[in-house]
């Protein structure tokens, strides 16, 4: 297939294909789940899902991270426990990472 992304038509076609693919990933699970009845086991699965996702997102970052990322994680947890505010904690984590990267020259 030869779609040239440097032409307007080619670019538009590729963006359209990406948009369809992205929307399909957003509705696929929702669509399939509408045929599933929520038994206690399914409810337990859905309850466990957010933390499983969060563990999955964070573990590789922790594994690949260095001192700056660890400082960021620590600052996030500390500020969350202090103020119980999700966004404030995230901003603190980001600031800690920026400060550490500046200090370490990385």
């Amino acid at each position: 297939m030869s779609i040239d992304p440097n032409t307007t038509a080619g670019f538009a076609l590729i963006v359209a294909a990406m948009a369809v693919a992205a929307y399909l990933t957003r509705i696929a699970g929702f669509f399939l789940m509408s045929f599933v009845s929520v038994t206690p086991r399914v409810e337990a699965w859905l309850k466990a899902l957010p933390l499983a996702i969060m563990g999955s997102i964070l573990a590789p970052i922790a594994l690949h991270g260095g001192p700056a990322e660890y400082a960021g994680f620590a600052a996030t947890v500390a500020v969350f426990l202090w103020r119980r505010n999700d966004i404030l904690a995230a901003v603190a984590g980001m600031a800690a990472v920026a400060a550490m990267r500046a200090a370490l020259g990385g």
């Binding site: 947890v77 984590g93 990267r101």
Partner: peptide, 20 residues
């Protein structure tokens, strides 16, 4: 990267994990 912006979403997820 020096603004730490790439870390914002992981940090948000971590604070939500604490919340959950």
């Amino acid at each position: 990267r020096r603004f730490g912006l790439d870390f914002f979403l992981p940090a948000f997820f971590l604070s939500l994990a604490c919340d959950f």
